[in-house]
Each structure stands twice: as structure tokens, then as C-alpha cells.
Simulated assay, not measured.
Amino acid sequence: MNILILTGRFGMGHVKCAEAIKEEIKHKYPNSNVTVIDFCDYCFPRASKYIYKGFELCVFKFYDAYNKLAKFSNHLNCVPFKRMIYNHMEKLMSTYSPDLVVADLPMCVQYFSSFKKKHRVKVPFYVYITDITIHKDWISKNVDRYFVGDRICKRELIDNGIVDSRIHVCGIPVARSFAGGTEQPKRETNVLIMGGGLGLIPCQETILSALNNEEGVTTTIICGKNEALRHEIISKYKNINAIGFTDRVSDYLKEADVIITKPGGITTFEAIKARTPLYVIEPTLEQELGNSRFIKRKGLGVIVSNRDDFNVQALLDFVHNADKINKIKDNMRVLSERFESSNPVDYLEVA
């Protein structure tokens, strides 16, 4: 069986999700041929690096403009460069001969669903939505099955005309390595700080200063590719373990009792799988706001909506509150037990 997964580096969450889907398929169906394609690299090989850099600039420097553009685009109904993209789609289908096409990026959903309709493609097309909120670009009647993180997401799809039986609440797929957080008693509370690829979170200096001087707390911050930040932390905070880019995120997350982070869809569900309570300060992007509402509604952590409302003592109280932390861990366990299978091949026989 040949399976093609279409994704892109608009935030690394989509790529992580694609790799997790591939891992899940290969674990259960080892003879499957699974190929992950960066859609932007494939269709725009000369321009993709500039497209990605422009996206990062908008997200990190001009997020207000990014949010306004996202809201505006939600009212549009256009798929540009169709003819050129269709040529790439034909080449993809010819090269890989997929029995199933999967996408976890809105751009891929619109282009492939349009291609599928125009060329009467019979190959099943499954879509994984990587946030709790729904953007119009995720929605197409030509998608055969949707995989979503929460029932709220499922309801939004149904309200937009997608048939109930085609939607599966499975959580957002994350790597298998995140499963099985430690439940052993510890002498100290482990706090993990992650702020994405640049390692930045709101109120960072205040948080680090407080945790650096707090007894009974071991703090690790993952700085990603921001080496300047890592060296600054090492020089200023002797009790903070600052590390750079690492492929051991799952190990650090499973060891942590609390994670202070941005509420990206993938990060949220990595924490759920590891049973690590979330502490979020000032979510900014539209999808982060939706994910934060989900975290609060399901009792998966603490949300501080505005940095002006941040209180460092409240953070320290939370870090030391074993009863509250254990309650959140239990909420995560119960939520996970209700998820359907996230393996797309499981659904092919009844497609």
C-alpha cells in the first residue's frame, strides 16, 4: 500500500504531525510505503524558502497583522495558481501511485480537493486538522475523512456541511515517544520551558529569575536554535539548565511536572500524551487562542490571557501544588482514553 502525506513548514507542528502519522502507520502496517512531501518545497522549489521566511517574520514580528489576515482570508474562496499546481499534482500521483492521500495543511486541502474533483480522482483523501479551531481553508466536500482534536472541532465541521460519520475525534497525532510520562515520586518538581524554535515566551526573564531562586524546583529551558539566548541564560542563571536544539524533547517533557509554553496544537497534544500540565502566558495567534480555550475547558492547565495579569507567585504556587497537578494529569488521561484511532489505514476498509 502506498500512502502520500502532504505537509509544510508553516510552523513545525504540521511536519511533526505528518511524521507522527507516518510512524503510526508503519508501526501497525510495516509493509506500507509512506512518503511525506513538503508541499511548498515540491510546488515552489525556488520560492519556498522565501515563503517560509516571510511566514516566520509575520508570526514572530507582526502577529496582529497575521491574525487580521487570517480572519480576512476566512471569508475568501479562491485557490490561486491552479493550473501550475495541478501539473505538480499529476506528477505526484504518477510518481507515487498512492492508495491514500493524507494532508495536514490547509493549503494542501484546498489544492488537492480541487484537483480531486476536477480530475475525478478516486483515491481516498483524509485530512488531519492541527489546531482546535477551524479555518475555512480546512473545509472541502471532497475530503473523505477528517481527523480532529476535539468535539468542538467536529461540531464546526458539521455546521459547515461535513457529514458526522466522516469526522473522527482522535486528538492531534504526536510521536509515540511522548507516551508514558513518569509517575514516580520525586524529591523536586521539574519545570520545562519551551517557546518554539526561537525559545521565547512572554515574561521570560521574570519567570527564569523566580525559578532560578526557588527551592525544590529543577528548571530546564529548551532554547531551540537561539544560541544567543542559551548562552545568556547560562551566564545569568546558575540553577537553570539551558539546552539548544534537541531531538530529546519527548524525554524532557515526560520528566517534567509542568510545561510553560506556547499553546500550539502539536505542543498541547504532546503534553497531553506525556501527561504534563500546561502553563500558558498570553497566547497571541488566532489558533493559539482557540487551543487555550480548549486547555481551559478540559482542565489541562493554567491560562494567563494577558502578560499584565501574570503573577509570579501564582506560578510558583501552581508548580508546588501537587494535588492540582495530579488532577490535571488525570484529566489528560481521561481525555486520551476517549480518542478514536488516529491511524488512517484503520478506516480504509470502511471508506
Results as ranks from 00 to 15, higher is better:
residue 295 I to L: 12
residue 9 R to Q: 11
residue 277 P to F: 06
residue 349 E to Y: 03
residue 337 E to D: 14
residue 205 E to T: 11
residue 73 S to T: 15
residue 61 K to A: 10
residue 193 I to Q: 04
residue 31 N to V: 06
residue 90 E to R: 14
residue 345 V to L: 10
residue 270 E to G: 08
residue 96 Y to G: 06
residue 25 I to D: 07
residue 247 D to V: 10
residue 46 R to F: 08
residue 220 T to N: 05
residue 51 I to T: 08
residue 350 V to I: 12
residue 104 D to V: 02
residue 246 T to M: 06
residue 258 V to P: 09
residue 224 G to E: 05
residue 251 D to H: 13
residue 138 W to C: 02
residue 298 K to L: 07
residue 197 G to M: 12
residue 1 M to I: 11
residue 241 N to E: 09
residue 182 T to I: 13
residue 193 I to E: 04
residue 326 N to D: 12
residue 18 A to P: 09
residue 233 I to R: 02
residue 59 V to H: 02
residue 241 N to W: 00
residue 131 D to E: 15
residue 300 L to Y: 07
residue 243 I to L: 04
residue 246 T to P: 08
residue 162 I to H: 10
residue 88 H to A: 13
residue 270 E to R: 09
residue 163 V to S: 09
residue 311 N to V: 11
residue 255 E to K: 14
residue 115 F to E: 00
residue 237 Y to A: 00
residue 48 S to T: 13
residue 107 M to K: 05
residue 93 M to Q: 04
residue 104 D to P: 01
residue 146 Y to W: 03
residue 230 R to C: 15
residue 224 G to M: 04
residue 89 M to Y: 12
residue 120 R to Q: 14
residue 100 L to R: 12
residue 308 D to H: 13
residue 39 F to E: 02
residue 4 L to H: 04
residue 238 K to P: 00
residue 310 F to N: 12
residue 217 V to A: 08
residue 258 V to W: 08
residue 178 F to D: 06
residue 245 F to S: 08
residue 178 F to N: 07
residue 120 R to P: 00
residue 196 G to S: 10
residue 232 E to L: 09
residue 29 Y to H: 09
residue 57 L to F: 11
residue 223 C to P: 09
residue 200 L to G: 00
residue 348 L to F: 02
residue 328 I to G: 00
residue 3 I to E: 03
residue 100 L to D: 06
residue 35 T to G: 00
residue 229 L to T: 06
residue 67 N to Q: 07
residue 344 P to Q: 07
residue 18 A to N: 06
residue 34 V to P: 04
residue 116 K to R: 14
residue 1 M to R: 05
residue 48 S to L: 02
residue 69 L to K: 11
residue 336 S to N: 14
residue 292 S to D: 01
residue 71 K to G: 13
residue 6 L to W: 03
residue 194 M to F: 14
residue 317 D to T: 06
residue 101 V to G: 04
residue 60 F to A: 05
residue 286 E to P: 02
residue 81 F to R: 10
residue 185 P to W: 07
residue 156 E to A: 11
residue 16 K to I: 11
residue 83 R to V: 05
residue 111 Y to D: 06
residue 336 S to L: 14
residue 263 P to C: 14
residue 300 L to G: 10
residue 117 K to W: 03
residue 255 E to V: 00
residue 37 I to V: 15
residue 337 E to P: 00
residue 37 I to A: 05
residue 116 K to V: 10
residue 57 L to A: 13
residue 272 I to P: 03
residue 261 T to G: 02
residue 297 R to E: 15
residue 285 L to C: 12
residue 245 F to H: 12
residue 151 R to L: 03
residue 315 L to T: 09
residue 321 N to H: 11
residue 231 H to E: 15
residue 112 F to R: 06
residue 310 F to P: 12
residue 311 N to R: 13
residue 67 N to L: 09
residue 87 N to R: 15
residue 303 I to S: 10
residue 250 S to W: 01
residue 59 V to P: 01
residue 42 Y to M: 03
residue 47 A to D: 15
residue 212 N to A: 04
residue 295 I to Y: 11
residue 117 K to L: 13
residue 312 V to C: 12
residue 27 H to V: 05
residue 132 I to N: 13
residue 227 E to A: 10
residue 170 C to W: 07
residue 289 L to W: 07
residue 235 S to F: 01
